[in-house]
Simulated assay, not measured.
Amino acid sequence: MHIDLSGKTALVTGSTAGIGHAIAKGLAATGANVVVNGRSQGKVDQAIAAVKKAAKGGTITGVAADVSTAEGCASLVQVQPDVDILINNTGIFEPKGFFDIPDEDWQRFFDVNVMSGVRLSRAYMPAMLKRNWGRIVFIASESALMIPKEMIHYGMTKTAQLSVSRGLAELTRGTAVTVNAVMPGPTMSEGVQTFVADLARQNGQSEEEAAANFVKQHRPGSLIQRFATVEEIANMVVYVSSKEAAVTNGAALRAEGGLVQTIA
């Protein structure tokens, strides 16, 4: 299969690092014009340079905006008023016991992980429907289905993303616009690398040992028994964004290494 997105413009939120950055590179490799997004101009500029170096595809641009706020989303849309492909990737996580999570954290997680995608989908989806082509992808998590007891607030936001993406898909009936969610499992992004490095130092282990032990202890149901790479998650997202994925709509697609023990 050859995925060609030449002439299509793709916005990937939170794409200066991690899964989002890998998605930006993957989409650029298909020929798409990619819009990188992050909160600081410096990181956006660095990400643009890295994507350009990795993939000789379409035009690579960027917008610095904090999409966790209504004002940030509005400023992003003002600079980039139209896209063919919207990847709602921006997200945060933090292990914290339920009884230690204040109201402010619940609101912050909801604003970043859920409302960013709600606001941007509301801004960009009408034009997709009007021209009868578009792709919206929410980057959720296996935590949407298997709520982690150490991050209940995070799990809540990921479940909400599944609800929003399925609801929006219902609005595409009879069109060539699709809305889907992708659910990564444990993935070795920069933030997770830092977390694993801290574990390794605390336990006197190598990072490889710490990563393997984490999966065995905290995600024992994993069939692959390892962290995924950001590129492996990006591959799924690039496919769902493609013309070839025309009949995949309203789906919650698992890329979690078999953690979720169900056939549906």
Results as ranks from 00 to 15, higher is better:
residue 145 L to R: 07
residue 101 I to E: 08
residue 112 V to F: 05
residue 133 W to P: 06
residue 201 R to V: 13
residue 211 A to W: 01
residue 147 I to Q: 04
residue 136 I to C: 10
residue 133 W to S: 11
residue 154 Y to P: 02
residue 162 L to Q: 09
residue 215 V to G: 01
residue 180 N to L: 13
residue 179 V to R: 10
residue 147 I to S: 08
residue 197 A to W: 01
residue 122 R to P: 01
residue 109 F to P: 01
residue 178 T to L: 10
residue 111 D to F: 04
residue 108 R to I: 03
residue 119 R to I: 13
residue 126 P to L: 08
residue 161 Q to C: 04
residue 217 Q to A: 15
residue 163 S to M: 11
residue 131 R to P: 03
residue 116 S to T: 12
residue 196 V to E: 01
residue 133 W to F: 13
residue 204 G to F: 06
residue 166 R to D: 01
residue 186 P to G: 13
residue 136 I to H: 11
residue 101 I to A: 04
residue 176 A to P: 00
residue 145 L to D: 05
residue 210 A to H: 04
residue 175 T to N: 13
residue 150 E to A: 14
residue 212 A to M: 04
residue 126 P to I: 12
residue 113 N to T: 14
residue 144 A to I: 06
residue 192 V to H: 06
residue 119 R to H: 10
residue 152 I to S: 11
residue 147 I to D: 00
residue 154 Y to F: 15
residue 127 A to G: 13
residue 122 R to A: 12
residue 135 R to W: 06
residue 123 A to Q: 07
residue 128 M to D: 09
residue 101 I to F: 00
residue 153 H to C: 06
residue 141 S to T: 03
residue 171 L to G: 06
residue 170 E to V: 08
residue 138 F to H: 10
residue 155 G to F: 06
residue 198 D to R: 14
residue 129 L to V: 13
residue 162 L to T: 04
residue 146 M to Y: 04
residue 212 A to V: 04
residue 137 V to K: 02
residue 173 R to A: 15
residue 148 P to N: 08
residue 194 T to E: 13
residue 208 E to V: 05
residue 153 H to N: 12
residue 197 A to G: 11
residue 142 E to F: 14
residue 163 S to I: 05
residue 154 Y to C: 04
residue 105 D to V: 08
residue 146 M to K: 10
residue 229 T to L: 07
residue 156 M to R: 00
residue 141 S to A: 05
residue 114 V to F: 00
residue 197 A to K: 13
residue 226 R to H: 01
residue 199 L to F: 08
residue 123 A to K: 08
residue 228 A to C: 09
residue 217 Q to W: 07
residue 110 F to P: 00
residue 145 L to A: 09
residue 171 L to R: 14
residue 114 V to P: 01
residue 226 R to K: 14
residue 205 Q to N: 09
residue 143 S to Q: 02
residue 147 I to C: 12
residue 155 G to C: 08
residue 105 D to H: 09
residue 208 E to W: 00
residue 122 R to M: 05
residue 189 S to E: 10
residue 126 P to F: 10
residue 158 K to V: 11
residue 201 R to L: 12
residue 197 A to S: 14
residue 177 V to F: 10
residue 228 A to Y: 02
residue 117 G to C: 11
residue 132 N to G: 09
residue 166 R to Y: 05
residue 108 R to A: 11
residue 156 M to Q: 05
residue 104 E to S: 15
residue 157 T to W: 00
residue 135 R to S: 14
residue 127 A to Q: 13
residue 113 N to G: 07
